[in-house]
Computed example of a mutant assay.
Amino acid sequence: MIPFVDLKAQYLSIKDEIDTAVIKALESTQFVLGSEVVALEEEFAHYCNADSGIAVNTGTSALHLALLAAGIGAGDEVITVPFTFVATTAAICYTGAKPVFVDIDPVSYTMDVTQIEAAITERTKAILPVHLYGQPADMEPILEIARRHGLVVIEDAAQAHRAEYKGQRVGSLGDIGCFSFYPGKNLGACGEGGMVVTSNPEYERKMRMLRDWGQERKYHHVFKGYNYRMDGIQGAILRVKLRHLDKWTEARRAHAARYDKPLANAGVKTPTAMPYSHHVYHVYAVRSQQRDTLQQKLQEKGIQTGIHYPIPVHLQPAYADLGDRAGAFPHSEAASKEVLSLPMYAELSADSQTQIINAVIAEYV
């Protein structure tokens, strides 16, 4: 069986480094926040070309804190996309604000920037683009629209560690950037984790307090906050993995290039890296009108795949109250029926990839 993601292979490749870091963290007894988390915050912020990093327990918490720091609350509206993991929308709802969807561009799968201005109302306070699959959204027009309308831009970079837009790392393009360290991400913890990066000192101050019960100092609560703190062991693990991220990213990009050529005329539509994008291929998603059949056939041949995502958020029962109906966002709905993610991880062997490519081609000969 060729796995969709092989976390064991990654662990074994850096086992000695990880084990040493974990033992050191255990011996320090700094199990919540602590020196390893502080060091990770500094290193990851520098990696993203941002001034500050605020480590949290999940990527969802990162989004939630970013919205709260930006002053988003009840009665406000935040523009985002329905073709994303549900956490993007959920975080907006946590604040009491309303998600307002615009469709995706059918080529990049990221926010269609031509639809943003029509969605802006007097209640709009922020734009939340998603860098989906490792591809940055088209940030230049998003930032220009935001400036003209006085809106905050919060990047959902949960799938885009090390991605770049016109040479600049994602996370530092908008006002705040949010990352997930879920285990399967390009930079993944051995458990849950997340990070917010920003160069706005007031946002940083507020998010640091909000993640730790709203405390300015111990037992002095300025805000009604949350327990969103990162574990010290995860901080130590992520510091090790961050040192390997460049190498892993180039491996992913090489795998994507190896997929691209033979699959280009194989009956599936391969991903398009936009001209402005340094794509990091969190997933390698092809499109097929016979997606479900293709997935079944690959499974029968011992190849695991994934679907990101089979139901756009506006059609999820949990968000029916937002009032968007089928047909409202046709590109998101079409993609949800056709995308199929092939195995993609740094340790993927050339032999496995050849087997995957041949299996896909065989279904269209």
Rank of each mutant, 00 (worst) to 15 (best):
N49K: 09
G73T: 14
A62K: 11
A69R: 05
V56W: 12
S61H: 15
A66Y: 09
S28I: 00
L26R: 07
A25T: 00
G73H: 13
G73M: 09
G59T: 07
A66R: 12
C48H: 05
N49Y: 00
A39K: 06
T60K: 09
S52M: 08
D76L: 01
H46A: 14
T20D: 13
I54Q: 06
T60H: 14
L26D: 07
E36Q: 04
S28G: 02
S28H: 03
K24N: 10
I23R: 13
E36D: 10
L63E: 12
E43M: 04
S35H: 02
A50E: 14
V38F: 14
L63K: 11
S28Y: 04
A70H: 11
T58V: 05
V22G: 03
K24Y: 09
T58P: 07
K24I: 00
S28C: 01
E36C: 01
L26G: 01
T60S: 14
H46G: 11
E36A: 08
F44S: 11
F44L: 10
A55G: 10
G34H: 02
V38M: 04
A55V: 06
Y47Q: 15
G71K: 02
L40I: 05
V22N: 06
E42M: 03
V38L: 05
E36N: 05
D76P: 03
K24R: 06
L33H: 05
E43T: 11
I54N: 08
V38H: 12
A69N: 10
E27C: 00
A69C: 08
H46Q: 15
I72D: 13
L68W: 01
A55P: 03
L68M: 13
A66C: 09
G53Q: 07
T20Q: 13
G59W: 11
L26A: 01
H64L: 09
L65V: 06
T60G: 15
E42H: 12
T29C: 03
T20Y: 10
E43R: 12
D76H: 11
I23E: 15
V32N: 00
G59F: 13
N49W: 00
H64W: 03
G34Y: 04
G34N: 02
L68C: 08
S52T: 04
T58A: 09
A25N: 03
L63P: 09
T29H: 08
T29G: 03
A74G: 13
Y47P: 15
A70N: 13
E41N: 07
G34D: 04
A66P: 09
V22E: 08
G59R: 06
S52D: 14
E41T: 01
I23L: 04
F31I: 01
Y47T: 15
S35T: 02
S61C: 07
A70C: 09
G75S: 07
G75V: 05
G34C: 02
A21F: 00
L65K: 09
V32A: 02
K24D: 13
E41S: 02
A70P: 06
G75R: 04
V22D: 06
E43C: 02
E27R: 13
L68S: 10
L63C: 07
G53L: 03
S28P: 01
A45L: 03
L40T: 05
N49R: 07
N57M: 10
T20A: 10
S28R: 03
E42W: 14
S35A: 05
A39R: 05
T60F: 15
V56F: 12
